[in-house]
């Protein structure tokens, strides 16, 4: 029996990207919410809630990029040039907000103010750039002979802007959910308001993006039942659990906020992201550079994929184990804001 290595690796990369989106999503979201914090103590508590884990969260981005390089180099070699500018903007934004964790604590008055702004602005720009990358990716890349052959601004369309705004709202939702879970007092109450607003925005933008995505490419429309001749109800019915999952996530958030649950809003946010992620993925599968190169065409030879699979099989459980351990260690409400009320 031989394993379908490209398919397994497509799954591994997909999981790494999803983990990145939800994990760094909530700490980017905390940065996006930074300008709305009432005072420096609230900001300190917000940073404190993510400081021990953000670096590990961002490592999933390196696994996503590094994994794409290592497993699907031909896709890596077209996706990154095609989305050059938003990816570079994302990297620069991540640099600024990443160093801000330490620099904020070191700065005196002006320095601290600057790095507070850099943390907020960097988080927002990183999220917007990631949204533009995502939107530009899903609307499709122009390839000739396996190389990128489009223009430098192909990614900039009303669709990609809508995805970017949606992703910012989504990250803010995750960030607010995280803060509801991990803080107490006034900040906790504020985070509930933020979560409510963000959830409303996410619901609208998710619906808008979902509809707009149907018009991107005939394959996507056909997957969801609109095959150009008419409506195929069976196709939509097969995929119906995905939007239903999103609705369930939004309901979890709404109920959680109404019943003052500490965990449900964050959990609901995760469910909404899972739904959105699956919803987009079923549209462009099996393309890894939509709608021009499939994951099989992009994959490395089996000997490389097999070697790495051995590594993943051994190391990924270990990584997940100590990641969970670190989260468990830093569980509970952030304590440094005891004097904050």
């Amino acid at each position: 029996m031989s394993l379908d290595l490209p398919l397994i690796w497509a799954g591994i990369i997909a999981v790494a990207v999803l983990l990145y989106v939800v994990l760094d999503g909530f700490d980017l979201g905390v940065g996006i919410l930074f300008p709305f914090a009432p005072d420096p103590r609230a900001r300190d508590a917000m940073v404190q809630s993510v400081a021990p884990v953000w670096d590990g969260n961002e490592t999933w981005l390196v696994l996503g990029g590094g994994g794409l390089f290592a497993a699907f180099p031909r896709a890596y070699a077209v996706i990154l040039p095609a989305l050059y500018l938003p990816i570079m903007a994302m990297l620069l934004a991540l640099v600024l907000r990443g160093v801000a964790f330490e620099f904020r604590a070191r700065g005196r008055a002006r320095g601290k103010a600057f790095w507070t702004a850099a943390f907020a602005g960097g988080s927002l720009c990183a999220a917007l750039s990631q949204g533009l990358v995502l939107g530009g990716f899903i609307q499709g890349l122009t390839l000739t002979d396996g190389a990128f052959a489009g223009g430098p601004f192909d990614w900039l369309t009303p669709y990609s802007v809508m995805v970017a705004v949606g992703l910012v709202a989504g990250y803010a939702l995750l960030g607010a959910g995280w803060l509801i879970w991990r803080t107490e007092g006034e900040l906790h109450d504020l985070a509930r308001r933020w979560a409510g607003t963000a959830a409303g925005a996410v619901a609208m933008l998710l619906a808008g993006v979902s509809v707009a995505t149907l018009f991107l490419h005939p394959q996507v429309a056909a997957r969801w039942g609109f095959d150009g001749h008419g409506f195929v109800g069976a196709n939509l019915a097969r995929l119906a659990p995905i939007p239903l999952l999103g609705a369930a996530g939004l309901a979890t958030i709404g109920l959680g906020l109404a019943r003052r649950s500490h965990v449900a809003p964050f959990a609901g946010g995760l469910i909404v992201f899972l739904s959105g992620y699956l919803g987009l993925a079923v549209g462009f599968f099996p393309y890894i550079a939509p709608y021009a190169m499939t994951f099989r065409e992009a994959a490395n030879p089996d000997n490389a994929l097999a070697l790495m699979l051995v590594g993943v099989a051994v190391l990924l459980p270990v990584i997940l184990g100590y990641t969970v351990f670190v989260y468990w260690l830093f569980r509970g409400k952030v304590t440094g804001d005891a004097g904050y009320h």
């Binding site: 696994l63 180099p73 490389a304």
Partner: peptide
Amino acid sequence: SPVIGPLLAFEVL
């Protein structure tokens, strides 16, 4: 990548 891709992947992992 077919040759050194796994090396960089192992660095991450």
